[in-house]
């Protein structure tokens, strides 16, 4: 059963171009100059109940615009959207009772108050009766391991703790769908992992559908079963993460620094992207050479001073998708 249906969705902005300077401002007042921005181009997709979907792409690809249209903040130029059977344009209010949102930097929590006070306010805003709210709060405190955090003023929480409270706050009214816009941005690895686990647990226990935007490949790999890749407003890929992983998320970047000069004779599946006398940047094709093998080989060279393993950045993956497509065609 699908909970989100999108058909030929388009969003065109007519942004006024404003130049610097007093004279330009004055001219713009009389004869404005407009620039058309086609932020979302004719996209269609559906999301099933209980699914975790990643909506990925580089900055400015149209992710946020799409999520804003799905939640009713922005109205589409053309196309159809149905979220839980509601039309977000006409029924934003009714829809809001059934969806939860965590939008990056925009907090629902009051900065000077402990989250529990914000929870009480949100409970009233979403018309949750006191008994249900209490029960729900307890559930969420346990699930998100909030404990005493909930009684600490938000300004004293770390970013990771705050995001946990933020996600919990967005779930108070037991939404059927949770929209997460870049939930792990700015967090360190351990905290990212924690947030991911919590999101997964919630999806498993409550069957909440999750729609997530991210430009962190880690989020996608570890959370989602399906991913839609969007670039310049167009869907360029819509497939299971397993396949995406095999086709495109098949590389790791290893940066290594040695104590002494090394002449590298790389094994199969490893490519030297950059090398100096004392170090190198290696690209590992994990289908051919596992990270385990690659690391063993590096260690066996001796004299390792420093080593880091990273995912390739989203921009690189996107360009790989494009070149892959072009060669296939």
């Amino acid at each position: 059963m699908s909970v989100i249906e999108v058909r030929s969705l388009n969003k065109l902005y007519r942004a006024r171009v404003k130049e610097e300077g007093l004279g330009a401002s004055f001219r713009a007042l009389i004869k404005p100059v407009y620039k058309e921005v086609h932020a979302v181009k004719n996209i269609s997709f559906t999301v099933d109940k209980g699914e975790i979907l990643a909506f990925i792409g580089p900055n400015g690809a149209g992710k946020s615009t799409t999520i804003k249209m799905l939640t009713g903040i922005l109205h589409p130029t053309s196309g159809e959207i149905s979220v839980l059977g509601f039309d977000p344009v006409k029924q934003r209010k009714q829809l809001s009772y059934h969806i939860g949102t965590v939008f990056g930097q925009k907090s629902q929590l009051w900065f000077h108050l402990p989250p529990v006070d914000s929870f009480a306010l949100l409970g009233a805003i979403y018309d949750i009766d006191k008994k249900t709210l209490k029960k729900r709060e307890e559930e969420l405190i346990e699930c998100f391991e909030l404990g005493d955090l909930i009684k600490t003023p938000v300004r004293k929480l770390s970013l990771g703790q705050r995001i946990r409270c933020e996600v919990a706050a967005s779930l108070l009214h037991s939404p059927d769908i949770l929209f997460l816009d870049e939930p792990t941005i700015g967090l360190d690895v351990v905290v990212k992992q924690k947030i991911r686990e919590l999101i997964l647990r919630m999806n498993r226990d409550q069957g909440t559908t999750i729609f997530l935007t991210s430009h962190d490949t880690g989020d996608v790999e570890q959370l989602c079963r399906r991913a839609i890749v969007i670039d310049h407003g167009e869907i360029i890929l819509d497939q299971p993460v397993k396949k995406l992983k095999y086709d495109y998320l098949n590389r790791k970047i290893i940066a290594v620094r040695f104590n002494l000069e090394q002449h590298l004779d790389v094994p199969k599946g490893v490519v030297v992207e950059k090398s100096g006398k004392m170090g190198a940047r290696l690209s590992v094709d994990t289908r051919v050479c596992s990270i385990d093998e690659a690391m063993r080989w590096i260690i066996s060279q001796g004299g390792v001073a420093d080593i880091t393993v990273e995912d390739p950045p989203m921009e690189e993956i996107i360009s790989t998708i494009f070149t892959g497509k072009n060669t296939a065609e």
Binding site: K68, T71, K93, S96, Y97, I99, F103, I125
Partner: peptide, 12 residues
Amino acid sequence: TGELDTFLLQPK
């Protein structure tokens, strides 16, 4: 700053 979005997403 787009803080307005928070209020748009609430049913009030």
